[in-house]
């Protein structure tokens, strides 16, 4: 059974590999929301280890595990993005049900869509659509949340290529794509 991309647009192919501005939908199989007790202030560096995945206590931090990403959302909330089913099976394990601080791991696969923005002028486009201070020299360990065109968006850097990922609720992804496409027109 084939996954259907969320975004469809007549200009999608034109901008997918454009060297000035490249916009594309990136498929990730699983998105997990991990929540801890908000009343606890954590002082240790690693809050919890779920098998080999260490949840670090660092703000606006993104941690890479091979091709998987652990994104900081708030002092008690993370998003784990992965293409493997390993975590999916792990978090079902009863041993994670009884950890006091761990409130929930909710499978949000297919609730989110990720758009990748790269190319020579991607910073110029970001300057139009977000108030965040996103400069070229920000490292790939950076993530943040902001409103882009009034849509709550998780913004994170790519560790492999120059560019940025924008993760939004799937129902907004077509609108966000069109917003970015419109903002990019002068560079295409």
């Amino acid at each position: 059974m084939k996954v259907k991309p969320y975004i469809s647009h007549s200009e999608l192919n034109k901008v997918r590999n454009n060297k000035n501005i490249s916009i594309s939908e990136v498929y990730f199989k699983h998105y997990f929301n991990i929540k801890f007790d908000r009343k606890i202030v954590y002082d240790q560096d690693i809050i919890l280890e779920i098998e080999d995945i260490k949840i670090p206590n660092t703000y606006n931090k993104i941690t890479y595990y091979d091709n998987d990403r652990l994104i900081w959302l708030s002092p008690y909330e993370w998003m784990y993005i992965t293409n493997s089913d390993k975590f999916h099976n792990l978090c079902k394990s009863p041993k994670y049900e009884y950890i006091d601080d761990l409130k929930s791991i909710i499978d949000l696969s297919s609730a989110y869509t990720t758009i990748k923005l790269s190319g020579e002028y991607y910073i110029n486009v970001l300057n139009k659509i977000t108030t965040l201070d996103i400069l070229e020299n920000i490292t790939s360990e950076y993530c943040a949340q902001s409103l882009i065109s009034n849509i709550k968006t998780i913004i994170w850097m790519d560790n492999l290529t120059k560019g940025i990922f924008l993760t939004v609720n799937s129902s907004y992804s077509q609108y966000l794509f069109e917003t970015i496409l419109d903002a990019s027109q002068e560079f295409i």
Binding site: K35, D37, K103, S104, I106, L108, A111, N169, S170
Partner: peptide, 11 residues
Amino acid sequence: FNVSLRSVTDK
């Protein structure tokens, strides 16, 4: 209350 909420509308 030990309760966690999450919207899954889009899922």
